[in-house]
Computed example of a mutant assay.
Amino acid sequence: MNVTVLHTAALDGLPHGFLGRRGGVSQGVVAGLNVGLGSQDDRAAIAENRRRAVEAVLPGAKLVTLHQVHSPDTITVTAPYPDDARPHADALATAKPGLLLGVLTADCAPVLLADREAGVVGAAHAGWKGALGGVTDSVVAAMEKLGAHRERIAAAVGPCIARASYEVDEGFFRRFCEADPENERFFLGGRAGHHQFDLEAYVGARLAAAGIGRVELLGEDTYANPEAYFSFRRATHRGEADYGRQIALIGLPA
């Protein structure tokens, strides 16, 4: 099975892609293209999956990933990091050709960004905590320091857990509404004391509010598509001992 790469019109012409679980060598509960170094998967399988991911998007590029911690922090990248020395952060930006920026997700929202004219790209891992904390604002600011202009930036929000699959409690709902009363629009009422949260729409709205010129949402639900995507919440609900991570990639050709 070949690696499945989702491309977006917003980033057309640039090496990029949102990858799922198809096309990898991992076995068991993380079967497929698991690229998560934080999983219990065989390290050789993870390395092969990462190699396949790079070859599917920008052959010969150097992959750069992070030790993701649900922060709003962005790292500006000029060279790859060893796997055991990845910075603790949740977004990357670069103007250097030949690097492939990667963010890993398993329900959180992957965001890929580019200002073609400036030759600057970015990638962000936006779970609810990072999204609320401003990780998308942070990556846009880092890209601007490299010469990008936010009105020229195109962004795409990739596969993540959809509102129908994302039940949250009253405390979660209040946290968002206290940050901004208008955030209530991203929630639908659910069973007593619970709400359904639209992470993708929230991340898209944050990008639009930041002045990004074009924002595209893929509308792919990681939780509801077990054949196509890894999902932390689904693995938890199934009582599985581990879960895989998929990767979203963007780079500048060398």
Rank of each mutant, 00 (worst) to 15 (best):
A9N: 14
A10E: 10
A10R: 10
L11F: 05
D12A: 15
G13E: 10
L14D: 05
R22F: 03
V25S: 11
V25K: 10
G28E: 01
A31G: 09
N34H: 04
V35I: 05
G36I: 00
E48F: 02
E48N: 11
E48I: 07
A53H: 08
A56S: 12
P59F: 00
K62P: 01
L63Y: 06
L63G: 07
T65E: 12
Q68V: 00
V69E: 12
I75H: 06
Y81M: 03
D83K: 08
D84M: 03
A85Y: 11
R86V: 01
D90R: 00
G98K: 08
L104Y: 04
A106H: 04
D107E: 11
L112E: 04
L113R: 01
G119D: 12
V120Y: 05
K129Q: 15
G130K: 09
V135F: 06
S138F: 05
V140H: 00
A141Q: 13
M143A: 10
E144L: 04
K145L: 15
L146M: 08
I153W: 03
G158F: 10
D169W: 05
G171K: 14
R174M: 12
D180R: 14
P181M: 12
N183D: 05
F187L: 02
G189A: 15
G190I: 02
R191P: 08
H194W: 11
V203H: 04
L207G: 07
G211W: 13
G211F: 08
G213P: 04
V215Q: 01
V215L: 03
V215R: 05
P226R: 03
S231V: 06
S231N: 10
A241Y: 06
A241V: 04
R245F: 10
